[in-house]
Design a protein around this nucleic acid. Structure first.
Length: 410
RNA sequence: GCGAACGUAGCUCAGUUGGUUAGAGCGCGGCCUUGUGGUGGCCGAUGUCGGGGGUUCGAAUCCCCUCGUUCGCCCCA
């Protein structure tokens, strides 16, 4: 019986797990530098947590969620994104008393989409959220943080920061109405997908890749003309600060984001090196969302990054695991060998033996696996209660006993 | 969810008018060399030819279904 992994789900091992772990460790390091605390939430939640905040008409809610009934008829969903569970968690645990409250987390998300490169049904995200501040410093800080993480992991790749402002929640409401009217008047020139969105989600028409749509969008009312003076001033200042931080920005008036809860600043870090799933990190401000989920009326800003997409751009991680290889020449010497094996482990060294009794093979494997030393245990070592230690880097070999074994091993 | 291409050994891939027992390189195992690696030589095993069904005397090859991967659309991380 041969059973395959579920479509769009993958096992992680070898080079891939090295990349994965490197990302996680860099993320944790930068998070602590910026004083963000780790928060891990359950992998499933009540379905209602996602429906309203993400938008009843959004594709994620409409057709991509893994939802099922529990035995007591509770409707449960495997989390398709991390922002709403994070907010639920900070409300549930009363973590919004000291503001701003800064949290990050990593973990699996689930969306039932057609898999392709950079898009999987189970995938891993990095999430950073800053709750409780409307200060533009919070926007800048969280974008800067994303940029630093990407620069550390992918120093040589061409990644662009796309940025836009959607305006306040009220502005956005007005603009959507005007946009719906405009698109209704130009219905005949739009693609079928876009026509479906005219009333439910007209913003999404703005970032359509369809050629005819793009022509219509060119003539559409521009979002920036609807921003209030305050909004505009804020947006200009954010851009200025990002430029001062030497983060090149690309102003993208068609950048709107797919989830309903965004307003004001929205941004994406994009690359042209991995095909059509090109957003590495996406996020923005979500004032009003915390209130929607039953908390206080607090603002928030955050982003999500796709670990698998970042991995696609990474070079192999050089694994410099220093270790000591064992070469045991006969089953009889196992007891003697175990003394050194155990001694080294207890002194915090890494050891490995392949359970075979062939010296040539052992040396060959030790060489391949980049061992620093080989401890050789044969007849004479067994009789004389000592160990031969070979330095693989320079070829030197010395005989030591347990008490002075560490003299030759660094 | 829509359109297209692809699926042969652990990996990268050959394999045409359908014809014995399905191949190469790398890797793997053994030996040359029963105490010395990174670079030699010889030998060997790779396998439900993604899975199921059909056509045929005969299918890796043709047809249908199915699963998976990739690319584009859609969507997004």
């Amino acid at each position: 019986m041969k059973i395959n992994p579920i479509r769009g789900a993958h096992d992680l091992f070898g080079e891939e797990i090295n990349k994965f772990n490197k990302i996680i460790s860099e993320v944790k390091l930068v998070a602590s530098q910026f004083s963000f605390n780790e928060l891990i939430t359950p992998i499933f939640e009540y379905s209602e947590l996602f429906k309203k905040p993400l938008g009843e008409q959004s594709d994620v809610v409409l057709k991509e969620m893994y939802t099922f009934k529990d035995r007591n008829d509770d409707e449960i969903t495997l989390r398709p994104e991390y922002t709403t569970p994070m907010i639920r968690a900070v409300i549930s645990n009363g973590l919004l008393n000291n503001l701003p409250a800064k949290f990050f987390g990593t973990g699996q998300m689930f969306r039932r989409e057609r898999p392709q490169k950079g898009r999987y049904r189970q995938f891993n995200q990095i999430n950073f959220e800053n709750f409780g501040s409307n200060d533009l410093f919070a926007d800048i800080e969280i974008i800067n943080l994303a940029n630093i993480i990407l620069k550390k992991i992918l120093p040589n790749n061409n990644i662009k920061l796309h940025i836009n402002s959607l305006g306040s929640r009220e502005n956005l409401k007005d603009y959507k109405k005007i946009l719906s009217n405009f698109f209704n008047e130009n219905k005949n020139s739009l693609s079928r997908e876009s026509i479906d969105k005219i009333n439910s989600n007209p913003l999404r028409i703005l970032d359509s890749k369809n050629k005819e749509d793009i022509e219509v969008v060119k003539k559409s009312p521009k979002l920036i003309e609807f921003l209030s003076k305050d909004n505009l001033k804020n947006y200009e200042e954010i851009k200025k600060c990002l430029i001062n931080l030497e983060i090149p920005i690309y102003e993208d008036s068609t950048l709107v984001r797919g989830l309903d809860y965004y307003c004001n600043t929205v941004f994406e870090f994009k690359t042209d090196e991995i095909g059509s799933q090109d957003t590495l990190i996406g996020g923005g401000r979500y004032n009003g969302l915390i209130k929607t989920l039953g908390g206080k009326d607090l603002p928030g800003v955050g982003w999500a990054g796709g670990i698998e997409r970042i991995m696609l751009l990474m070079d192999n991680v050089v694994n410099l695991n220093q270790y000591i290889h064992f070469a045991i020449l006969d089953p009889e010497y196992k007891t003697h060998a175990l003394k050194a094996y155990d001694f080294l482990i207890k002194n915090n060294y890494s050891v490995y033996w392949n359970y075979k009794f062939n010296l040539k093979k052992s040396l060959s494997i030790a060489n391949e696996k980049n061992a620093n030393y080989v401890v050789i245990i044969g007849e004479s070592e067994n009789i004389n209660d000592n160990f031969s230690v070979k330095n693989l880097k320079n070829g030197n070999q010395e005989i030591k006993n347990l008490s002075n074994l560490l003299d030759v091993i660094k």
